[in-house]
Design a protein around this nucleic acid. Structure first.
Lengths: 345, 345
DNA sequence: TTGAAAGCGATACCAC
DNA sequence: GTGGTATCGCTTTCAA
């Protein structure tokens, strides 16, 4: 069914039907009513592909994330979507599962859709794609990667700073043997996170750090990595998880190993997703305001009328704040002060 | 940038470029190479809107869910998406947040996109929309609602059966005062779930049931409803949550009220999402195989070559199985056997 | 206030 | 093998 069908039945031209459907141009009230009636009768819905093709403009935003299952990404997506809807935009989301190849094809798919803007909130960004995006004239906003300028905006949260605050806090509680639990070490941005941890540890002389990296984000991955960590021989008094979602698994493995949190081992997460409050015990973590990030992303992609100036190519900074709950406490007295070191993946 | 640009630069007609891009029809190897080189140089990506418009077919599936945040829905979506990608389809997802109005516009949006098929996995289905969908010739698959036939398939999980198994089990453990925690009682399908609980309870004479319904799916909603339940005066020895996601909040509220699970109060969920295993204590729940549901949905929407016959309008049934973990135990001795009854929302 | 017609960027059929 | 062109369903001038 198409405009033609509606037009015939309503005894008008397709141009008129189009005007009615778009509230564009003058239409006599009676004609308008008649057209609308026919549209309803026929249950007609305009072909959006034809519409964007003819119209030129897209009114659709693309959002690409690494792992929709991790509430961190979902929250950002939802904030973008809500702003978008409020402004008459649609958004289509793509999930990459941390696969660079999937990211590439998702980006191309979005380009094919001629989206009005693209938010790339992923951990698997690679420089080649970065280049391609910069050369395109697609409006893009990145998360914690790349630099602003031209068609590119970005949002930075300073992960190292958050980790540093965490390590500092644990140190102040007397923790010396601290383990790190992460995932996908092969991806640059995630490797950087791991490195942030190592750097933070270095600031405190004679520290031992140990990391276990798994290939899955999420509770199951966190649990597996923790098992590794415990088996490694290091007996950490604290474990820093790369994010809250993984920390959930850390807690579980400790519990199953009869280690009490926080009496025996302290645990920290990152992001402050809602589940962090529902964990047992509630997680000490670093707050990253996902909703704000979503709103900023939207602003970066859709120039607002009331914006003082051109916002294209802007850089936004977000400050990570430590949120202390019940998964951290003073380090237990050290029964076995033998120091070991090592970093396995 | 369009086919024309590529064609000119490669010194061929747009028809040839199209052939190359679609691997359709014969093209001389050298021409093909030249075209591909130009495509790469220009970083050209075909306009998908034009493509679907011209081609007629869509190669995109629509998925509409009530709450992406609830892993139940996300898991189904991911299964559909994975099958889709394997078969060269794309999928676009829409979230309704349990709002019938949002469902309606999402459906219309999908129609506008001329999707090849639509999976409607929601709790807010209303009969009017149902009718509209049946009259359209869009291939649709529903979850736990409507009946198969024509362009409509559906997948049924027999929620009442699962709840009955749960209540039966709790009863066998000696529980008599059982509370129910749900959300969005105004929506028919969710109201049915609540009713399933009441029915199950009725099978056991002299039973008291009490329900607290909130307006949010999820842990926060679960917690709030549980507080209501505890304040109500009924002192339940068991709480049945409408799903695992809410049960997470139930557990938290009980913990904060110094009620031990399962010693003081037993708790059950529904769905068997992964988080159920990570809850403290791990949740007794009813397994609903989300991945299978996703695969079935895909099968219902995309007729497979190797399918013995027409699968359109088929009905799939799924059997809910009780999964016993550690959140349920024998009912504690009854200190206060005063019976109360009531059902608040 | 309305209609006719020129695109939008592809696909696909038909010639050559 | 390759090119020309009708067509998909809509938006958008331009005339009437």
């Amino acid at each position: 069914m198409n405009l033609q069908d509606v037009a015939e039945r309503a005894q008008v031209s397709i141009a008129t039907v189009s005007r009615v459907l778009n509230n564009a141009g003058p239409v006599k009230k009676s004609t308008r009513a008649r057209v609308l009636r026919v549209v309803a009768e026929l249950n007609y819905h305009p072909n959006l592909h034809a519409r964007t093709l003819a119209g030129g403009k897209s009114r659709t935003l693309g959002v690409i994330v690494s792992n929709l299952e991790n509430p961190f990404f979902l929250d950002i997506f939802r904030a973008i979507e809500s702003d978008a809807h409020r402004h008459g935009y649609e958004v289509v989301v793509a999930n990459t599962d941390y696969r660079p190849q999937q990211l590439l094809s998702s980006v191309h798919l979005m380009m094919g859709r001629r989206v009005a803007g693209l938010a790339v909130i992923v951990s698997e960004m690679e420089s080649g794609l970065m280049q391609e995006l910069m050369q395109s004239n697609l409006r893009v906003v990145f998360y914690d990667v790349g630099k602003a300028g031209g068609n590119i905006s970005n949002i930075r949260t300073n992960y190292p700073r958050g980790i540093q605050k965490t390590v500092e806090y644990l140190y102040s509680l007397g923790h010396r043997r601290i383990g790190f639990v992460g995932h996908h070490a092969a991806l640059d941005p995630l490797c950087d996170r791991q490195r942030s941890f190592v750097e933070a540890m270095k600031r405190y002389a004679n520290q031992v750090e140990y990391g276990a990296i798994t290939d899955r984000d999420g509770p199951a991955g966190g649990q597996q990595a923790t098992r590794q960590l415990l088996d490694s021989g290091l007996r950490p008094t604290a474990i820093v998880a790369v994010n809250d979602f993984m920390a959930l698994g850390v807690l579980k493995e400790l519990r199953e190993s009869s280690l009490r949190v926080p009496q025996d081992v302290s645990v920290t997460g990152y992001d402050n997703i809602q589940l962090a409050e529902f964990a047992v015990p509630p997680l000490t973590t670093v707050n990253i305001p996902r909703a704000d990030i979503g709103h900023l992303a939207f602003k970066a992609l859709v120039p607002q009328a009331d914006d003082e100036q051109e916002i294209q190519g802007r850089e936004f900074r977000i400050n990570p704040e430590l949120v202390i709950r019940e998964s951290t406490a003073v380090a237990p007295p050290s029964f076995d002060p033998c120091e070991r070191t090592g970093y396995s993946t």
